[in-house]
Design a binder for these strands. Sequence first.
DNA 1: TTAAGAATTTAGGCTATACTAAATTATTCT
DNA 2: AGAATAATTTAGTATAGCCTAAATTCTTAA
Lengths: 227, 227
Amino acid sequence: MTAHSSGEPLTPSSEDYLKAIYRLSSGQDPVSTTGLALRLSLTPASVSGMVKRLSEQGLVEHSPYRGVRLTPEGRRIALRILRRHRLIESYLVAFLGYTWDTVHDEAERLEHAVSDGLIERMAVALGNPRFDPHGDPIPDVDGQIVDFIHVPLSDVRTGETVTIRRADTGDAGRLRYLASAGLVPGTPVKVVDAQPFQGPMKLDLAGAERIVGHELAALLLCSRDGG
Amino acid sequence: MTAHSSGEPLTPSSEDYLKAIYRLSSGQDPVSTTGLALRLSLTPASVSGMVKRLSEQGLVEHSPYRGVRLTPEGRRIALRILRRHRLIESYLVAFLGYTWDTVHDEAERLEHAVSDGLIERMAVALGNPRFDPHGDPIPDVDGQIVDFIHVPLSDVRTGETVTIRRADTGDAGRLRYLASAGLVPGTPVKVVDAQPFQGPMKLDLAGAERIVGHELAALLLCSRDGG
DNA sequence: TTAAGAATTTAGGCTATACTAAATTATTCT
DNA sequence: AGAATAATTTAGTATAGCCTAAATTCTTAA
């Protein structure tokens, strides 16, 4: 019996796996070895090995050849890391002059090093925010996370108006470009024209016209309700 | 030839060794395996092994059975970590409500995770301080560090007045006690009486009387010049 | 000066995590 | 269905760091 009792410290590597599984599974669906390997820039063989260990610790369930999913305990830890990551990003932007395209890597390392106490102090300094600078929701201390229905901009039909809610990438180049084009969370956009076959979209941003390719449009998650 | 060219990332463990060697050697003197092992809470055998690896990387010089000392490159890295550690402590105290007795462990982990960029932003936010909350000098970006002549309070003679400059420990209990007794950096104290054979000292703190044991007095580094 | 004791290093093991190459299982297409 | 292909796992290897136990070297004191 090797169940993971809450107190034991996990390695940064394990934490990264759990976080990646959570992100890829949208909380529930089983995740493939290859998907995880791509996300973490590792070989599938390495992932297989680690998944086995996480499974022995009771943090994931693994049906060989069928995929991994988080146990409740694994999800608890994944959400804790996600909270850390997003609060750190928020703090760096709010208090230390970072921009939304540069915080990711820093948070990626700090999330494994900060104590719970420090995270909560940051949360207080920020006024317990519910969203980070990319528009991603921040889980609360108990692991509750808001889950809006978001649509990739690439799926929005011509004529429809939506509000950008999140940019679903950590890539600095893409984030910087999006910011320079005014495509940031909170911005309402109208789809003026959408070409088929992964073609570009023509958008209306408060009167200004923008063209974005399919790849970027797929990254921009939007809400339909006007809030 | 396996010299360490500036760019390669070091492991947290290596960084801890270099920092410990620097602290124990006061910058120059050779350090014993046992001394390092005690400081790092490791076995001497483990230290032997790591020292060999550091030596192969050109970060320390090791004469077997005689001790280790830092190479210029090793010292450069040690000072960089020391700068990080002390700036992080300063930042946590100044901006996140930590007290001087609680920052040590947090800084111990963060010093390996923060980027140079974040450290410099913290330094700017703090106004490029030259001392941390314990009174320890903070090396500048080029590794320059002020080196005052400090005397342990336990060595100060009866009748003499000195100013506390540093508390030479990371132990939270001792630091808390010192703070509660008003024995913090910047405080002038007069030695009223000192008993021999590691006995206690009677001090005068701005009119108030204090008794401290030898162990604590040895931790309090003081300056004689009135500044 | 030599034997006891202290300090140090070597030898051999263990764990975590990654890799490559080979074997296995699943899926898809004819 | 059966073969080709894709996905996954297993086997074997490497590195970093730690450990204990044994061997070595240094120091000290009779």
